[in-house]
Computed example of a mutant assay.
Amino acid sequence: MNLTLNGEAIITKTSNLAALLEEQGYGEAKVATAVNGALAPASFRGETQLKDGDAIEVVAPMQGG
């Protein structure tokens, strides 16, 4: 399946967001995720099915003042 991850085209065989994050090296990282612009909460990543052409954004929280 063809996806866009943080603006980069990727090809994957994974079918859900949790598996994609694991495959891409995010594993247990504390990140925020969105699929096609809609927030994808961590508790629903295993249930969030991906489709060909989806755009996924993964953002790590930043600290600062």
Results as ranks from 00 to 15, higher is better:
M1S: 13
M1K: 11
M1F: 06
N2M: 10
N2E: 14
T4M: 05
N6K: 07
N6L: 08
G7D: 10
G7V: 03
I10L: 03
I10M: 02
I11P: 14
T12S: 11
T12D: 11
T12C: 08
T12A: 02
K13L: 08
T14W: 02
S15Y: 00
N16G: 11
N16F: 01
L17W: 06
L17V: 13
L17N: 09
A18T: 10
A18S: 14
L20Q: 04
L20C: 07
E22H: 07
E23F: 00
E23P: 15
E23L: 09
G25M: 04
G25R: 04
G25C: 07
Y26V: 07
Y26G: 10
G27T: 05
E28A: 12
E28C: 10
E28G: 14
A29E: 15
A29R: 12
K30T: 09
V31Q: 05
A32L: 12
A32W: 03
A34Y: 00
A34T: 09
A34F: 02
V35R: 08
V35K: 04
N36F: 01
G37P: 15
G37Q: 03
G37Y: 00
A38E: 11
A38M: 03
A40L: 06
A42D: 14
A42W: 04
A42S: 14
S43Q: 12
F44V: 14
R45E: 09
R45T: 05
R45L: 10
G46R: 03
G46A: 02
E47S: 11
E47W: 01
T48A: 03
T48E: 13
L50C: 12
L50F: 07
L50K: 07
K51V: 03
K51F: 00
K51Y: 00
D52T: 10
D52Y: 00
G53F: 00
G53E: 05
G53I: 02
D54K: 00
A55P: 15
A55Y: 02
E57H: 03
E57F: 00
V59H: 09
V59K: 10
A60H: 12
A60Q: 13
M62Y: 03
M62P: 15
